[in-house]
Simulated assay, not measured.
Amino acid sequence: MTTPGLHERVLSRLGPAIVAGEPAPGEVLRLEQLEARYGVSRTVVREVVKVLESMRVVTSRRRVGVTVLPRTEWNIFDPRMIRWRLAGADRMEQLSSLSQLRTAVEPVAAALAARNATPEHCGRLTAAVIGMSVSARRGDLEEYLRHDIEFHHAVLEGSGNEMFAGLTQVVAEVLAGRTHHHLMPARPEPEALRLHAEVSDAIQGGDPARAEKAMRAIVQEAIEAMEAMAAEPGEGPSRPPERRRSGGKPRAGDVPRPHVTRRR
């Protein structure tokens, strides 16, 4: 395995372990201990420590070692940190916190995008909605996820607010976590697809109020769907598509086709 591959392998084991509390904050790790534990060279260990330092997870001092920092010091917006925490025991707590962040940011971003989005952003939104609709019909959750991430990326970037655009990877990790940790239905809800199409239409039509309202509904629908699935042990992507929260059966016509309004 190459050095970059070893580095990622060790990071993917040590990082989640620290996030889970083993080793605990304040505990000191020795480089030689990490070398022996993971069977890698000192160079690989140092690369891993540098990444963890950049995330404010640990601090390193000569003759002291690598000290695990308290959670209050961590860069909680780092995509790796989000991924590790979503893989841990406090997954739902983390999803709840991130969903609250989305509720505060994305509706406002959608309203701003209705004022500031360029034709390029509008084209990306249309393509993403079409891609989501097609992949939903196929039941291809990974492809659906790819288009969903692109949709939200276009909204955040189209807002014209660089701080909102900087949260793109945070939102992407939330969406990916929902899919990869079995908190998505086997086929995405028609209502979720309809709302995405409505946001796209409102942004392209220059309607900030409608864009904000529809995006707020998207986030709320996601929260309710995650809570419902988390409350059903054993449920996940393999859940039969006819078992829907609304109690209805899916129909081919349930998936909306995006309506494109030309910006004036």
Rank of each mutant, 00 (worst) to 15 (best):
Y38A: 01
A214R: 00
A17Y: 05
K213Y: 06
A87S: 14
V57Q: 01
L31W: 02
R102I: 08
A24T: 00
R124G: 09
Q169L: 05
L86M: 04
A165N: 03
R30V: 00
A109P: 07
L11F: 02
A110N: 08
R216Y: 07
V28F: 08
S54R: 02
R257L: 15
L112R: 13
K249T: 14
P16I: 00
I18V: 13
R37C: 05
Q220R: 04
A110M: 12
G206S: 14
G131P: 10
T179H: 13
H153K: 13
R9I: 00
M226W: 06
R262V: 07
L101S: 07
Q33R: 15
V66S: 11
R251A: 14
V51P: 04
V45D: 04
V134P: 11
E232M: 15
A211V: 05
G177W: 06
G65W: 08
S99M: 15
G236A: 12
E47R: 08
E191W: 05
V108C: 07
L183V: 01
D90T: 10
H181G: 00
E93F: 09
G65L: 11
L98Y: 08
R13M: 09
I203V: 15
L11C: 04
V10P: 11
H121R: 10
V171E: 12
A172I: 00
G15L: 00
Y38T: 05
V58S: 05
V44S: 03
A172V: 01
M163W: 07
G160R: 02
A217E: 15
A110K: 13
M55H: 07
V66Y: 12
A24H: 04
Q100C: 09
L31M: 09
A230S: 13
I82D: 01
L69T: 01
R115V: 13
V260G: 04
T2W: 12
Q33C: 01
I203W: 01
L6V: 10
V28E: 05
G123E: 11
L167N: 03
P107C: 12
H259W: 07
Q220C: 01
E189S: 09
W74I: 11
A111E: 08
D207T: 06
G160L: 05
V40W: 04
V28A: 03
L101P: 12
T2Q: 13
A209L: 09
Q169A: 08
T179L: 08
A117Y: 11
R178E: 12
L125C: 06
N161M: 02
A197D: 10
R263P: 06
V129Y: 07
A172H: 03
G131W: 14
L11Y: 00
S99W: 10
M1S: 14
G88C: 09
E212K: 03
Q94K: 09
V44I: 12
S97P: 00
A192P: 00
A24Q: 06
Y144M: 05
D78E: 13
R194D: 09
P23T: 00
I76Y: 03
T168K: 04
E224G: 02
G39K: 05
W84S: 01
K50V: 09
R210L: 03
Y144Q: 12
H147S: 14
E221G: 06
E173A: 02
H152S: 09
V174I: 06
R244W: 11
V174N: 09
